[in-house]
Design a protein around this nucleic acid. Structure first.
Lengths: 244, 244
DNA sequence: CTCTGTTATTCTCATACTGAGACTATCTCA
DNA sequence: TGAGATAGTCTCAGTATGAGAATAACAGAG
């Protein structure tokens, strides 16, 4: 065993090949509902099954670059996309072909360009997170982790502004929180909170052209502020069940 | 390019081999100061330089298992060690030998078994986080991320209890926070807070055998409670600089 | 044994933050 | 023109936090 360790340290190529992939959990909001980008696999394994977009990293390519490339291949989006690393998954057997270590990424997009199927997918679509098909590999687990991370990040970072355009109303911002957290928020308290957190949003002095679709006065327009962290944080409503 | 993608999807072995390693940031508290476990490299590259303990994953071994194994090889610790995945690093060139993707892990240990040098290290030691030597690879960056994660985790999880024994006093717990955060805390307020957060600690009914080394009454002993999250969180003192 | 310095624990008090509810003005749509 | 919805403010009570202080128990020096 020591001999084996010794050899392995010098020449990891003595071990069976390992593939490294990135999988992207791309989130956007459509019609007030959180949606995730999925692709339909065009080849085995899991042919025809929906999966997170992703693929092998290329030589000379950083992990973040690979994730951005994979996302761009399916959506064409490169600008205005926030992307960050999530976690890695490497259980033996998670891919039946060979040992695959996958690094998951979380991406947030403000608008919703119609997705395009990439080279190894037959279709691509946005799915509401409450109406998901069965996913390939361990992608359901990855997606679950990604959603929890996204929900937590909204609490203490201004990430929600990445889901809306460069100018937005407080209500639009509240819509983001409600979509990601899946629960309605108190409009008045949310308004007070957003304006009281230093650097979260800053006023543009402008207002919307007209009132909301279903009535109401014109709303003031804001842009993202310069805060990197929200302090004090904007916490989710009580979630007793997750504490114990 | 499309042809290349196609081939790559079918046979990633067509690409140059990639090695996958785990690197462990093991933290403990010695004399009230946060320490990290480092090993002195016994082989190139970076021969003689200090580095985070780590190594290549083995066939059939899950990532978490690999991290636990690497930690155990250097410390002999297996019980009472909290270990969790942190982030992955895969920049081309971060290891001069070949393409290496490294998955970092964070580990917390309550006591401090004297470290043992593993097979590919000539020495191993606990270093105070304020007195670090120059590290190999991009391990300084990894360590920086790990420390920030550890500091953040203390805020909203009962992780601090992983640094102390099965029974502990509130002051010992405060010592953990002060060591990790690197700042003194208000004893009275800390005490009130710890007892008011549901499920953080629970009373054992016992007290210490004697007072503290420098005087003071016997302290009540507590054990970790059943909370997985601290609510409301125990926040760090203001850190204005990190917000913007 | 007594005195001094430390520490554990509890309190007070002022301030900040939060949830719930209400009120007013403005706008869309029927 | 009226009904319904929304933006933006306010009030009020309850909770949480920071700072400081008070009390009591204990170790160690003399």
């Amino acid at each position: 065993m020591d001999e084996r360790e010794y050899l392995a340290a010098y020449d990891p190529r003595a071990y069976p090949a390992i593939a490294v992939t990135v999988d992207v959990v791309a989130l956007t909001i459509i019609g007030g509902v959180l949606h995730v980008l999925l692709v339909e696999r065009g080849e085995p394994p899991f042919l025809g099954r929906w999966a997170l977009p992703g693929g092998f990293i290329r030589p000379g390519e950083d992990l973040d670059e690979a994730a951005a490339r994979e996302l761009a291949e399916e959506t064409g989006m490169t600008d205005r996309v926030h992307i960050e690393q999530l976690a890695s998954y490497g259980s033996p057997g998670r891919d039946p072909r060979m040992r695959v270590v996958s690094i998951s990424y979380l991406a947030f997009a403000p608008d919703l360009p119609d997705p395009q199927a990439g080279s190894d997918a037959t279709d691509a679509a946005w799915y509401g997170v409450d109406r998901l098909p069965k996913l390939a590999f361990d992608h359901e687990r990855i997606l679950g982790h990604a959603l929890e991370r996204a929900r937590a990040k909204l609490e203490y970072t201004p990430l929600a502004t990445a889901f809306v355009g460069p100018m937005f109303t407080i209500s639009e911002l509240r819509g983001v929180y409600e979509a990601v957290w899946g629960a309605p928020l108190h409009a008045g308290n949310f308004h007070r909170k957003v304006l009281s957190v230093p650097g979260f949003v800053e006023s543009t002095g402008e207002t919307t052209e007209s009132g909301g679709a279903r009535g109401g006065p014109r709303a003031k327009l804001y842009r993202a502020g310069d805060a990197r962290l929200l302090h004090p944080a904007l916490l989710r409503p009580e979630r007793e069940e997750e504490i114990r």
